[in-house]
Amino acid sequence: MTTAAPLLPPADWRDFLALTKPRVMTLVVFTGLCGMLAAPRGIHPVLAFTAILCIALGAGAAGALNQWYEADLDAVMKRTAKRPLPAGRMDRQSALHFGVGLAAFSVILMGLAVNIAAAAILTVSILFYVLIYTVWLKRRTPQNIVIGGAAGAFPPLIGWAAATGQVAVLPVLLFALVFLWTPPHFWALALFIESDYAKAGVPMLPVVAGERATRRQIGLYTIPMALVAVAPWPLGLTGAFYGAASIVLTAIFAALAAQVTFGRNAPGMKPEKRLFAYSIIYLFVIFGALVVDRWLA
């Protein structure tokens, strides 16, 4: 005999909005927009708006499907326990339908209104986040963040493809930058909320390999990230403005990462919190510098 799930009243619309992880979407939309603005070909403002809307909706759909799949895990973590599903404000089926519907809508609209290349990359990014990261890797390997981070790296590629209909070296470098930025960014966070991940049984690097190995990995990933961040300038893909901005910004990132790499668990975890906070600013400003550089050119 099966027990029926308790009937829930229809979820509030704000809970559907919360499923899309609006805060994460900010960075996704911004990097997508910058990828589009850095492209050599212009795009009609209405189509540009549509492309950005599709990127945001696609990211929102991936976030909703992530929360649908991870409701059990979210329930045991303090940071996520108040989300609509673990808090019992929404049934899982509604979240699944919402996520799948939103994903299909964003991809179809991108394909019909913008171009097939952008729609194809958007599809890959949603599937990558949901299937590769959420379903396959997150609970299985401490490298979950590394490979899953690729999902968050797609927006500049999609933005560029929306404007040009193809992919080039610069957006691939932007993809690599976000990809390599993700491990130090998330592991800095994981260091100061380590106990929460441990409680949920997620094999985050600090949980399975320990704090010292995590610090070393943060340092190791910062090196290729720094090279990729500066590379567009010597390769002749950007001007001196981006070159100077990327060197200064990346030097600060590297200095903060070095403090974490060579540091120990200090009271308050200040270096880790500083690196995490700066890493967000870093990505916003370096992408902004790329757009300004394009305008100056």
Binding site: H44, V46, L47, A113
Partner: peptide, 13 residues
């Protein structure tokens, strides 16, 4: 409204 404006943009393109 979005579909309307997309149509206009596509016609102009």
């Amino acid at each position: 409204a979005l579909i309307f404006f997309i149509t206009i943009a596509k016609i102009k393109e």
